[in-house]
């Protein structure tokens, strides 16, 4: 498992670690049944507070991504249980929301006014909707 922490950025360290572990689980780089590094080992390796790592593992366990077996370690669970999908969706949406914020912020910095941004959103959304419905109907036909 590879985790790289960026320091001095606005994303909290616990979120950075959780996101990277999650991404590697979802991408299959860490397989179901694999054992994650122990809390102590990862804390040492990343030079991060032990409790932060505990919190990250607990969060991933609550999402149904991993299972903390007492005295044995933390193991990756097989994907596609419903809880997993729901949690995955929730996080994808959170991630999306952050990206969206960044885009809007950049627009403001570039001197685009809010009404302009709103116009862009409306136009893009209606375009995207038509496109998605076209794709859906062509899928149904085929």
């Amino acid at each position: 498992m590879f985790v790289r922490i960026e320091r001095g950025v606005s994303t909290p360290i616990s979120r950075q670690i959780a996101e990277q572990v999650r991404a590697q689980c979802l991408a299959g780089l860490i397989q179901p049944g694999d054992c994650l590094p122990s809390v102590r080992q990862l804390a040492r390796e990343l030079v991060v507070n032990v409790n932060t790592i505990v919190r990250v593992y607990e969060r991933l366990a609550a999402e149904g991504l991993v299972e903390m077996r007492h005295g044995e370690g933390t193991f990756v669970l097989p994907p596609s249980t419903t809880t997993n999908l729901a949690a995955d969706l929730k996080h994808q949406r959170e991630q999306y929301s952050r990206e969206y914020q960044a885009i809007v912020r950049r627009g403001l910095l570039l001197g685009l006014a809010v009404p302009e941004l709103r116009r862009m959103l409306t136009a893009t959304a209606s375009d995207a909707k038509t496109q998605i419905s076209k794709e859906n109907s062509s899928e149904k036909r085929s």
């Binding site: 922490i5 320091r7 001095g8 360290i13 030079v47 991060v48 409790n51 932060t52």
Partner: peptide, 8 residues
Amino acid sequence: DEVEAVAD
């Protein structure tokens, strides 16, 4: 930066 990673 270091404090953030290490401190509770």
